[in-house]
C-alpha cells in the first residue's frame, strides 16, 4: 500500500522585513548578521495573522491540490510551538474552518520545530491501519524572537499543510526514520514570552547530531547514498545550517538549494523543512527522489524518503505556489514589524 502526499498547500504572509532593517535598529553590523545567517529578509504576519489563520490558508490549498472533499478527511493534526492558546486546540478550529466532518481525529502536537513532521508520520500510520482515508498534517508557526536578541533576525512566519492518504499520490513517502534524545538546546518555559537558546550548543550536539543521525540511519536502512537522491531538504533555522548538513552528508549544493526558503522568509519553525519540501515539489519531475530531514529542539529529527509520482506536475498550479508567494511581498520597517507582531507591550489590545 503506497502512502504519501495527496496534496499540499503553503502560506507565506505578504509582509517582509529585511534583516538589515533590524540590525540598524539595534546597532549591529548588518553585513556580519547576513554572513552569520545568510537570511536577507523574513516574512512577517500581519497583526491579525497567527498560526491558526496560516494553518487554515495552507490547509485550504492542500485540499484543493489533493482534490479531496472536506468530508473525506478523517484526521487533522497541527504541529506548532506558538499556539495562540496554551489550552484550546488549533486542530478543532481547523475542523470548522475547513468544513470537515465531526468524525475527525484531531490534536495539536508539540516537539519544537519537529511536530509538523510527526503529524505526517502519525497520519501515515492511521492511513496504513485503515482508520482514516485522508488526514491533514499542518506545520504552522509565528514564533517569537526577543527584540534585540539574535533569534529576531531569523524568526519568520509561515505554514504548510499536507493531505496524507493512499490514492492519487503526488509523492509517495517510502520510508521514515527518527532520531531523538534529551538535548536542551532551545526551549521556552511555560508562560514565558520568548524562547532561550544555547547559542553554539544548538549546532553540533543538537541540530547536526540529530539531522545527520536521522539522515544516515535512513540511508543505511535503505542501502542508499546521497547520489541516489535528486533533492535533500533539511530543517533551516538559517541558511548556513542546511548547507553545512548537506556537505557533512555528501550532498552537492545544487541538491540542497532548491529546498531552501529560509533566506527569503526566515525560519518558519514547524513549517521550515516542510515548506522547503513544498517548494521542491513545485519543480520535481516524476520519479524524483527526495530526502527530507526535519529537526526540533529538545531534540529530535525525522528523516523521510519521498518519491514524486506522475501526478505531481499536474497538481502544482492548482493553488498558490511558493514561487508566487515569495514574489508577493511588501516591505515594512521595524516599527511596523513591532506593531504587526504585537511586540509592543500594550495594556489593552
Amino acid at each position: 500500500m503506497a502512502i504519501g502526499i495527496v496534496g499540499w498547500g503553503a502560506y507565506i504572509p505578504r509582509y517582509r522585513i529585511k534583516t538589515r532593517e533590524i540590525a540598524e535598529a539595534w546597532g549591529d553590523d548588518a553585513l556580519r548578521i547576513r554572513d552569520m545567517y545568510l537570511v536577507e529578509e523574513k516574512a512577517v504576519g500581519y497583526i491579525d495573522e497567527d498560526p491558526v489563520t496560516m494553518a487554515v490558508e495552507a490547509s485550504r490549498d492542500a485540499l484543493i491540490r489533493a482534490g479531496v472533499k472536506p468530508s473525506e478527511v478523517g484526521a487533522v493534526f497541527a504541529g506548532t510551538e506558538s499556539k495562540p492558546y496554551a489550552v484550546k486546540p488549533i486542530s478543532s478550529i481547523l475542523i470548522d474552518a475547513l468544513g470537515l466532518s465531526r468524525q475527525v481525529y484531531s490534536v495539536d502536537m508539540e516537539f519544537a520545530c519537529k511536530a509538523g513532521s510527526d503529524a505526517v508520520i502519525n497520519l501515515m500510520g492511521l492511513v496504513k491501519a485503515n482508520l482514516i482515508k485522508y488526514g491533514i498534517a499542518v506545520g504552522t508557526d509565528s514564533s517569537q524572537g526577543e527584540p534585540g536578541e539574535h533569534l529576531e533576525y531569523t524568526v519568520g512566519t509561515g505554514a504548510v499543510a499536507y493531505v496524507i492518504g493512499s490514492g492519487n499520490l503526488a509523492a509517495e513517502i517510502k520510508y521514515t526514520y527518527p532520531y531523538a534524545s534529551d538535548t536542551p538546546d532551545f526551549w521556552r518555559r511555560d508562560g514565558s514570552p520568548y524562547p532561550v537558546h544555547g547559542e553554539g550548543f544548538t549546532g553540533e550536539p543538537a541540530y547536526f547530531r540529530h539531522i545527520i543521525g536521522a539522515a544516515k540511519g535512513l540511508m543505511d536502512e535503505l542501502g542508499m547514498k546521497p547520489n541516489d537522491f535528486d533533492y535533500a531538504v533539511f530543517h533551516q533555522p538559517n541558511a548556513r545550517f542546511p548547507v553545512r548538513a548537506a556537505q557533512m552528508l555528501g550532498f552537492p549544493l545544487e541538491k540542497v538549494k532548491p529546498g531552501i526558503v529560509v533566506d527569503l522568509i526566515g525560519n518558519t519553525y514547524n513549517a521550515s523543512a516542510l515548506l522547503g519540501l513544498a517548494k521542491v515539489l513545485e519543480e520535481a519531475k516524476p520519479g524524483a527522489k527526495i530526502m527530507v530531514v526535519t529537526f526540533g529542539s529538545g531534540a529530535g529529527s525525522n528523516a523521510f524518503y519521498i518519491e514524486a509520482t506522475d501526478q505531481l506536475p499536474g497538481k502544482v498550479k492548482l493553488a498558490r505556489t511558493i514561487s508566487e508567494m515569495l514574489e508577493d511581498k511588501v516591505y515594512i520597517d521595524y516599527s511596523l514589524y513591532l506593531k504587526y507582531r504585537r511586540i509592543i507591550k500594550m495594556i489593552h489590545g
Binding site: Y46, I47, D48, E49, D50, V52, T53, V56, E57, R60, P84, Y85, K88, I93, A97, H348
Partner: peptide, 17 residues
C-alpha cells in the same frame, strides 16, 4: 477571501476569527 483574527477579548478571553 482569507481567514484572519478579527478581535480578541483582552489577553485572557477568546480570540475571534
Amino acid at each position: 477571501v482569507v481567514f484572519r483574527r478579527v478581535k480578541e477579548d483582552s489577553d485572557y478571553g477568546i480570540i475571534y476569527y
